[in-house]
Every structure is written in C-alpha cells, then in structure tokens.
Amino acid sequence: MTLNATFIGQFIAFAILIWFSYRFVWPPLVLAIEERQKKIADGLAAADRARKELADADARVADEIRKARVEASAIADRAQKQAVEIIEKAKQDAIAEAARQRAAAEAEIENLSFKAREILRQQVAELAVKGAEKILAREIDAARHRDLLDALAKEI
C-alpha cells in the first residue's frame, strides 16, 4: 500500500469531474425539476381555482333556480287570480247578457201581445159592426157611422 503518482492522476480526474458536474450536469437537471415543480404548483392552483369557480357557479345556479321557482309560483298565482277574474267577468257578462236578452224578449212579447190585442180588438169591432150591420141592415150607413163604430171598437 504505497502512495504514488496514482494519487496525482486521481486528483486531477476528480477535479475535472467535479468541474464538469458543476458546469454541465447539475444545472439542466435542477432546472427541469424546478420547472416541473412550478408547473405542478400552477396546475394545482388552477385546479383549486376551478373547484372554487365550480362551487361559485353551483351556488349561482342554485340561487337562480330558487329565484325562478319563486317567480314561477308568483306567475302561477297571478295566472290563477287572472283566471278567476276572467271567469268571474265572463259570468257577469253572461248574466248581464242573459238579462238583456230576457228584457228584449219580454219587450218583444209585450209588443207582440199588444199587436195581437189590437188586431183582435179590430176584428171584434169589425165583427160587431158586421153583426150590427146584419141586425140593423140598412138603418146604419157604414160610411156615415164610421167614427161611431171606430169609437165602439176602441171601447171593446
């Protein structure tokens, strides 16, 4: 076990290897590792952000749904109320129309019965006159006693 020039050779070789490692080997490896670490950190941060955004969106959606539900029920309420109103109004209209038509019909009936009475009266008057004519024969001149006969017919 003697020390010899191997020592010097190994000394130089070691120095060169250290320098090479320091200059060319270590920096790119560490750079790649650090870059990936940064990438992973960014990715995790992005995932966190996305999760938070998703939660926000969920909350917003729930909020919107709740609002929509409230609004829908308000609309339904309003619609129901309106429907009731429309039905009520239609009912009123129908009642009014019915009343009006009845009134018109009643007026018509009145009118017709009046006319019928008039015609009847006239016919009775004529019948009376004809009867009287037959009874009186020539004593009564139809033309001369027209106003008298008319007055009689009216009285009937």
């Binding site: 490692s21 080997v25 270590w26 790119p28 490896l29 750079l31 790649a32």
Partner: peptide, 12 residues
C-alpha cells in the same frame, strides 16, 4: 449518464 439525461431532460 447524468449529463446525457440533463441534456434531454424536459419539464413535462
């Protein structure tokens, strides 16, 4: 070996 890997190391 380390040097060769360092040259083609990627951050991916």
């Amino acid at each position: 070996l380390f040097w060769w890997m360092g040259r083609k190391a990627t951050a991916g």
